[in-house]
Write a protein that binds this DNA or RNA. Sequence first.
DNA 1: TAGTGGTCTAGACCACCGC
DNA 2: CGGTGGTCTAGACCACTAG
Lengths: 269, 269
Amino acid sequence: MNNMCLVPLTVGDRPVAGYGAGMGTTLYRRVAEDIKAAIVSGAYQAGARLPSEAELAARYGASRGTIRQAFAALVADGVISSRQGARRIVLGGPRLQTFNELVSFSRWARAIGEEPAGRVERLELRAASEDECAHLEVPLGSRVYHLTRVRYLSGRPVMIERTAYREPVGAMVAGMDLDVVSITERLEDLGVIFADAEHQIDAVAASSEDARLLEIRPRLPLLRERRRTADPSGVMLEWSDDRYVGDAVAFTVRNSASSKALSRLPSQR
Amino acid sequence: MNNMCLVPLTVGDRPVAGYGAGMGTTLYRRVAEDIKAAIVSGAYQAGARLPSEAELAARYGASRGTIRQAFAALVADGVISSRQGARRIVLGGPRLQTFNELVSFSRWARAIGEEPAGRVERLELRAASEDECAHLEVPLGSRVYHLTRVRYLSGRPVMIERTAYREPVGAMVAGMDLDVVSITERLEDLGVIFADAEHQIDAVAASSEDARLLEIRPRLPLLRERRRTADPSGVMLEWSDDRYVGDAVAFTVRNSASSKALSRLPSQR
DNA sequence: TAGTGGTCTAGACCACCGC
DNA sequence: CGGTGGTCTAGACCACTAG
């Protein structure tokens, strides 16, 4: 019983991605990585029963608490399910994305093997509307940067983003080569940290400007995502209205009795 | 320092809802409930710093691990955020819903103070399509129950649900008074347990049938939620295609680097 | 009934934040 | 620098599942 896929990696390991693994990573993250890798590799199919806590604890020379922490991360990600008394089982379905892939169109595009691109339609510094002040939590009358950009997936226009950036960040955005780079990644290079995001998703008909920019007919259904992103201390950084061509994109959410991260709201009026 | 909102409830307490609280509940759930209640009551505004683990441990006479478990539940729910070295802070925004409110239209409607209703358009037992067999994970040629129902919020039609139920469950559904009851709640009374759900959300144009049932014009944008729900052992119970009137409903998702439960997918084609 | 996960404790060391 | 959260241990008892 040595060459199992769940045996801890020894040397020269370079964890691919996921739980922030790396060289100086924590034990429970590595356990979670190993289990996830084993699932992705097909060693554990959907519905398969995973090893018990006790077995993994022995295999890694770790305490039970550490193994439980690893499993908890996988449950939170919707990868496995857990019930008292029974072995944990693998949940099928699409692989989930990292937080960063959700906030950055470019990162998401590359993660699914598509080539992201962007074309700036409008960039301006202007007084924020009342609505924008509320969402960005800045005083009335503040000036914010507005960016309107068309995003492409392998050459096809699939999304319009209309984003308002709060002041310290807006100035950084204004100085970028917006047609090429990922703003999110560029801002992170500059020390801006995106920590929490709140997404609101609904369906709207394409306006005439939407239709022109996306090269579709007006009134076709668009999937709208309005997003607020905050830094680690809770300061709002951006407020964005993104509209996807209806047949281009869908959102998926996995939830269970223990992990509830999605909410359904009635729209105003 | 006694009558604080975070002091553990003594006797005769009847926790309202949320973390599965009740009389014979666990300590960490009660701590989480108390904190959440304090946030909802306004004692801790968005951005406020919460008490430290050590302080709460002392106040509840609990160990640090238990308090951490309570905080972890709140982080998973997107209610608070957490970073090493700094006090936890309250995140603003809409209150999230329980898993049950997400799966059951009726429960959701009542939670937001609206009166749910339903009108059966069609109910039939027929052979499942190839697509349905795949989603319900039943053999090709299986028979499944199909239900088409229009759902109302305080008298206004806002959603069409087209649901396929896997066999053991379908028979139960067929025997219900579908115009009145919540199917989900009724099934739970009969011992069926909904444990995990996977939601896929996109935008589509209303078909002529959609338009007729929802009393709107054809081609208006609808928010479509396709949902698969499984029982605790991973057996698929239902596969549903729900379509909401565009300006009636939106979904919101809160995510952060530690809790990633949402995924964005390109649709086929 | 044996195995397994859920809850809880008491203590330890470290990394990070803010003063 | 002290306070704080992040990680980890070793052990205990209980509730539930499955054979």
